[in-house]
Nucleic acid binder design. Structure first.
Lengths: 202, 202
DNA sequence: CGTAGTCTTGAGTATCCTCAACGAGGGTGG
DNA sequence: CCACCCTCGTTGAGGATACTCAAGACTACG
């Protein structure tokens, strides 16, 4: 009996290095073993829209792509396991249990996209940033649930939330001044008042 | 050999009638046979966010839901085929071919969510509305690719695009005045200048 | 024909974006 | 070890865009 692990191609990437070229996203499953990645579109006019951040442990399904979506590592030393879609399909057909796992992972990827839709639908910048922090706190489970380490830059966050960098920065400053969070060196965030944060988010 | 069709529960809904109660979205697959539906969250403060419109032919995967997402018919006489998730899983395990179909449908649902993310990420209202029209023209394939019949109200569109009703209305008026589209009675749209519309969308 | 819901338009305001400057941190080379 | 450069992050001022509030037109339906 074959195993998923035998199909894996493990690779290691530096910060900013390409994981999948634009338009090739539907060829492979990816699994983030360590680090973080961003899935994005670069428009011809120079703008960039980040569709999805992939954190440690996340699976990415091979979603069909008409836009030229690319994937890049966010931090140095990001480790990715990639699986050819065809081989995974083949395996799923021979092993019903694995087929179920695959369906499960696909639904989880869809749930992540859905959260992102809710995030983008929030009316104000403060709500977007607040939701984003709560989301990151949930997902980047490193021991304490109120300590977040943001692996991505403010520019990344801005392109993810469809805001300008300045607005992201200002929103964080406002949350800090109101005593809702603390900021240590830009990338380390502590949630002091989760109630208040939840409240921004409805 | 069992067949998917034997598992279907067919039902018929009037405009505004519930198809799935909040939080039950992960129990069933749904397939829109006729009409249209909206998948949405009603926040406690009265706001409503539409995550997804389901048009004729669309499949909806049973995505896990922590928010209380509900589904409603958009037009009278909407016909839905529903399939219990468990039974579908069971069938998929016994028939690899169906398993593949299921994975395919799940990926298509994810691709739809992804398009919605790109839509919400557009900076201006005009781009959002323009993208929305192109999207609808692609999806509601009724003979002519440049004629659209919008089954939903302006309020629905506003909650979908995260804009106010007034802004949606104004954007459509602007597109009309610029000769990009024509409006017949509010719900019927013709695309006159697809190039221009594409251009708004980058 | 009246009513309720939908759609459009207008005026004023709040929010966010753009442009600009400055500060902090990390690497590199002298 | 320090100066320099580069990227990243923050803050300020001014202007553009979308929202809110309000009122009027259109449509569908009883």
């Amino acid at each position: 009996m074959k195993d998923l692990r035998t199909l894996a191609t493990i690779s290691r990437r530096r910060r900013g290095q390409e994981i999948a070229a634009p338009g090739t996203g539907d060829e492979c499953w990816h699994h983030i073993i360590f680090g973080a990645a961003r899935r994005y579109i670069a428009w011809p006019d120079g703008q960039r829209r980040i569709i999805d951040f992939l954190l440690q442990g996340d699976f990415l399904a091979p979603i069909r792509d008409h836009y030229g979506i690319a994937i890049e590592a966010v931090v140095d030393g990001t480790i990715i396991a990639s699986y050819s879609r065809q081989q995974v399909d083949h395996l799923a057909e021979s092993d019903p249990h694995i087929g179920g796992k695959i369906r499960e992972a696909t639904l989880a990827a869809a749930a992540r996209l859905e959260r992102q839709i809710l995030l983008l639908g929030r009316p104000t910048a403060l709500e977007k940033v607040g939701s984003f922090l709560l989301d990151m706190a949930d997902r980047s489970s490193i021991g304490h649930p109120d300590k977040i380490i943001l692996p991505m830059s403010r520019y990344d966050i801005a392109d993810y939330l469809a805001l300008s960098v300045e607005t992201v920065s200002r929103s964080l400053t406002i949350l800090k001044r109101r005593g809702v969070i603390t900021l240590i060196g830009g990338r380390r965030v502590s949630i002091l008042d989760r109630n208040a944060l939840d409240h921004y988010v409805h």
